[in-house]
Structures are given as C-alpha cells and as structure tokens.
Amino acid sequence: MDALLIVTPGAYTTVQDKGRYGYQQMGVPVSGVLDAFAFYAANMLVGNPDNAAALEITIVGPCLEILTDTHIAVTGAEMGMTLNDQPVQGWKAIRVKPGDILDIQQVKSGCRAYLAVSGGIDVPQVMGSRSTYAGGKLGGYKGRPLQERDMIQCGETKLLTKLRQFPSDMIPQYPLEIVIRAIPGPQNDFFHEGLDTIFQSDYMVSAKADRMGYRLQGPKIKVLEGMPKSIISEPTMPGGVQIPADEQPIILLVEQTVGGYTKIVTVISTDLPKVAQATPGDTIRFEKVTLGQAHSLYHDQKKLIQMLADQLSE
C-alpha cells in the first residue's frame, strides 16, 4: 500500500531494519540502523514488531506527503517537525491522514532520527533484510538513499486504540560530550601506553564520520615498538576501534566487513547508539569495562526494552 510520498528527501534518508546478518564472509556488511534503541522505540510506539523497517534520517529530515490513514512515530535525534505547519513532537505516536504534510527539519540535538510507520516500510528483502547498503547499491529502496518523488509502501496498517507516548524520563539526551564504554582488544597486546592514552584522553569526532565508521582526532595512539603496524585482514565488528597509520582512532560501524589495522578496544553494543547520535565536533571519551560488565549491561538493556514494550502495549 502506498504510504509516503517523498516531497524532499532530506540530507541522507535510508530504509533500515536491524541489519543483514550472515553474509559478511562474502563482503556484505551488516548495515541496518545505527541507533537500535531509538529504532526499537519508534516501532514500539506504532505497535510494530521490533524488526519492522523504518526510515533512518540524518542531520536534515525529509518532507513527506502522507498517503494513507495510519500512525507514525519519530524518535532519536531532536529535529524540528511540523504536521500541516503545526509543530509536533517526537517519541510519541502521531495519527496521520491522506494529504497530511510531515516536514522534518534540521537537527537540534543528536544526529539521526527514526521514522516508523504502522505495518513497517515495505521494500523487498535482500538476503533476509530490508536494510539499505548504499555502497553496494543493495537492499532498502532501490539500493539508495531516498530521492524526491519516491513512493514508499508500507505493510498492513493496524491502528491502535490509544496513541502511545514514550515515558519522558526514558528519552535519551544527546549531549555534545559523551562517554562510551569499551573493552580492550582484540589486539590490545599491540599496545601498552596506547591503552592508557585512549582511556584517558578526549577525542573529537572529525568530519569523516559516516555509517562505515567515525574517524576521531586527539592524542596519537602508538603501537608498541617492534610490533607490526598492521595485521592480516580479518573480520570487523561494529564498535571495533582501529588504529590506522596516522595513529588516530576510527570507531568502525555497520558498513565495514574486514580490516587490516589493529583494533585496540571494542565499543560495547549498548553504547553504539551514543556514537550514532554524535556529530563532527563532539567530544568522545572512552571508559574501560570488562567483557562481563558489557554482558550484564547488554542484558539490563534488553530487559529495559522489554519492560518499555510491555508498558507501551498495555
């Protein structure tokens, strides 16, 4: 069913779900949403399953004409937003009708917003996922970011009896300085002082930051004397922090498959949404945690998401 007509596409708007798993060995990156928390929240607000495809909106949002009677919700970065020229808020379900114009403007806080529609965005599944991998021109809407006059379909609408609203104290803040937790390794034995440097310094997000990875600027991180500067290329994971030849860290994200640089630390998955909401000029500090702590934080977050889902569906 036709659901949304793109009047203007925004800076970089793509269809994403949780990602495309199981094809990295063939060079197909996971892709998918960068801020999974905001994505789950958007789907919960419109009563979708947690993996229904949504729009990931970056920096400046699209202007959309609504073509069907449905619910939408926008979460994540705070962007100015109007429905038929009247201001509307994020983190709550909005009832929309054919002919309505939803205009999502430039970001005020954060970087990426998520727009979910009841029934989910319907694009063909490619290798089990609806996520866009623009670099490989596959998945999503014709394998590319949205453009003017694209017609977006959605699955079957199920109107909710109550307009859901996310608890305000659970809405994340996106400050200009963030602390993200990381575990040392997998190549921590290539570093000694470098580990002190990365856990004790402030790093600035550079303008070279996208869905593949965020390049940071700050104190140089040196590989131990006598150790090779690179390794045999091996699979990378979202959150891996590479130290390339210029000794400045890169936080790898969802559009990377393999890499030949050493990874000094790995950002825990629970904190990747914070990275996703950082923009160039923001400050990042790494805090060391153990693998055990990372696992328990992950379980806590899963419980929290389940609790919120239960609460919202009451």
Partner: peptide, 20 residues
C-alpha cells in the same frame, strides 16, 4: 520558503540548508 540557500559538507553528505 524551502529554497536551498547553501550546502554543508560533512560526514560524506552534502546537506542542503533551506530558508525557513
């Protein structure tokens, strides 16, 4: 309203800014 007035390049994206 909504005419493009300038462009910002960052994060490998050319972001068009529009008149409010």
């Amino acid at each position: 309203t909504s005419d493009v007035v300038c462009v910002i390049e960052s994060m490998k994206i050319f972001t068009e800014l529009r008149a409010a």
